[in-house]
Amino acid sequence: MPLQPWFNESKLGIFLHWGIYAVDGVAESWSIFTGGLTPEAYMQQLGGFTADRYDPDAWAELITDAGAGYAVLTAKHHDGVALWDTGATDLSVANRTPAGRDLVGPYAEALRRRGLKVGLYFSHSDWSHPDYPTIRPTQPQRDWLEGNRFTTPEPGAEDPAAWERYLERVHRGQIRELLDRYRPDLLWFDGQWERDERQWRMRELRNEILDRHPEIVLNGRMLGYGDYTTPEQGVPILPPEGPWELCLTIGDCWGHRPDDTRPKSARELIRTF
């Protein structure tokens, strides 16, 4: 299907990278992967996530004032923490944090009141779920992935049945929740690099998504089954073929970090745009 015309017409979108990692101001999810924090220390941030100043209407007003046509909120990053009340796992801000509520629905409603398109980010990977690191890629892995217990099992310790549970109950289950509850205009996927297309069954995933929501836009992190490509943190020397979107941080980091003290100047951002 052709890309929805609103995407190119929007010109500018706003990426809202928000999760429990903002509590201590640590690297989003990667703190677990790299060993910067133990999983237990990372998840202790759940207890400090209150969202007490969450104001999606103010977000929508700022996004409108910026001239953007859409926004993308990190509904679930690689840490597996959902910003909505998911029925697929118990790891959500509604269930496990003082915020105690769905944070995706009010965001979607606030954007739509302003005539903005609603985007939701969703990580294919889930470094917290026990059924996730249960099969190995069929193709050679990147060196930095090999041997990481959050992503892949040791040779000989594979559990294909557990992977099937993850794929159906968590991966597909949560994507269906987002589609059916919030009807996003855009799904922005990430975390696809840890498996190949056949293991993810990306073609089947694309078909199911379009069956439920034919007018949705899908980003390119679907291993050949997305609508546009997503270079990040730098304008490509040669433009990619077809539609593309540059995702660029205002500072050096994606989420809130107290040590992120080098914001790009307005001049640099405008020149890049």
Rank of each mutant, 00 (worst) to 15 (best):
E204D: 13
P214T: 07
Y166V: 00
P239H: 05
R181M: 01
E177R: 01
E215H: 12
A66C: 12
Y107V: 11
G242V: 12
S265D: 06
E208M: 15
Y166G: 06
G35I: 08
H129S: 03
D227V: 07
Y42R: 05
I270N: 07
T34F: 11
S125R: 08
L248R: 12
C253T: 13
V235T: 14
E146M: 13
R257W: 04
G147E: 03
I175Y: 01
E158A: 04
R176G: 01
L178R: 00
F33E: 10
D159M: 08
G220A: 07
P137N: 11
H213P: 04
G119W: 02
I250D: 03
I135P: 08
D190K: 06
H213C: 12
G36K: 13
A157K: 14
Q192Y: 08
Y42Q: 02
T86G: 05
V170R: 02
P56A: 08
L103I: 08
W84F: 14
I135H: 00
I209S: 03
L246A: 06
D185E: 13
A58N: 04
G173H: 02
D79N: 10
L37R: 15
C247P: 09
I175Q: 01
L111K: 07
I175H: 02
K11I: 10
R176K: 11
G48R: 14
T38A: 12
L269T: 01
D79Q: 04
L205R: 11
E204T: 09
D57W: 09
N148T: 03
Y21F: 14
R53T: 15
P243M: 10
Q233C: 08
P236L: 08
E268M: 11
L91R: 05
T229W: 10
G220D: 00
H129P: 02
L210F: 03
G220H: 06
S92Y: 03
T138D: 15
D259K: 13
R212C: 04
R195V: 06
W84D: 03
G251V: 01
W244I: 10
D227W: 04
I32A: 01
H124K: 13
V81K: 03
S125V: 13
G25Q: 02
P184F: 00
M1Q: 15
Y132V: 10
E168L: 11
W254P: 07
P140A: 13
R267T: 12
S125A: 15
W6S: 05
L91E: 06
G251I: 00
M202W: 05
A71W: 02
G87L: 09
G80D: 01
D227K: 06
D252W: 03
G234S: 14
P263H: 12
H124P: 07
G48E: 09
N95V: 05
S31I: 09
D227R: 03
T152G: 04
I135T: 03
N148P: 00
H124M: 14
S10F: 07
A68W: 05
G19Q: 09
W18N: 09
L210Q: 08
T261S: 13
P231H: 06
R198M: 07
L205W: 05
G47M: 00
W200P: 00
H213L: 15
G48W: 11
G48K: 13
P2D: 10
G255N: 15
R149F: 02
D65F: 09
P39E: 08
Y54Q: 04
